[in-house]
Design a protein around this nucleic acid. Structure first.
Length: 160
DNA sequence: GCCAACGTTGGC
DNA sequence: GCCAACGTTGGC
């Protein structure tokens, strides 16, 4: 079981949007970056835990927890000419882009802002700090525990 | 809304 | 396969 940080612009898809459908899986589609694609296709597995991060807002922050419920599979929005993230290079046999399904777990008791994270030297190696544009990022178990503590979460390792 | 960082594209 | 131009991300 591994830990990840998934970024999203809340104006596009927010943690509340995920919460509205707690009993449905939400495909995490539209990722069009090769490094993030590789994580989605090869590394991220069902059961992995997710820090849900809101970007491109006044106070960017980790706001909640989610969980991967389906391993990577082809992102068919790339094949749909009407879809926002259509990619004419993609095909059914060579999908290029991948996605996973995630489910809502729970909000953090206190959100952990980017500013909070930047102020903690133990989190200085997070891609969020030094390679902020990567939209799907690995999180170490240590980083996860630190962020759970900052978030006021009693249970250090989540799941339920 | 500005702009720096940086990933991607395409000419050579 | 280098690298300049271009486009996008995302913090501020």
């Amino acid at each position: 079981m591994a830990y990840w940080l998934f970024k999203t612009e809340p104006g596009c898809f927010s943690f509340d949007d995920l919460k509205k459908r707690p009993h449905m899986t939400e495909p995490w589609d539209g990722v069009r970056n090769f490094q993030a694609r590789n994580f989605l296709r090869d590394t991220i597995k069902s059961g992995d835990q997710i820090l849900f991060y809101h970007s491109n807002i006044a106070e960017p922050a980790v706001v909640g927890l989610a969980e991967v419920v389906r391993d990577g599979y082809p992102d068919t929005t790339a094949l749909n000419p009407n879809a926002e993230h259509f990619d004419p290079r993609a095909s059914a046999t060579k999908p290029i882009w991948y996605m996973v399904d995630v489910r809502y777990v729970k909000p953090l008791r206190k959100i952990v802002t980017l500013e909070n994270i930047k102020h903690n030297p133990l989190l200085a190696d997070m891609p969020l700090v030094n390679r902020s544009r990567l939209s799907i990022q690995p999180v170490t178990a240590t980083e996860w525990l630190i962020i759970m503590t900052m978030a006021g979460m009693d249970e250090k390792v989540t799941g339920q």
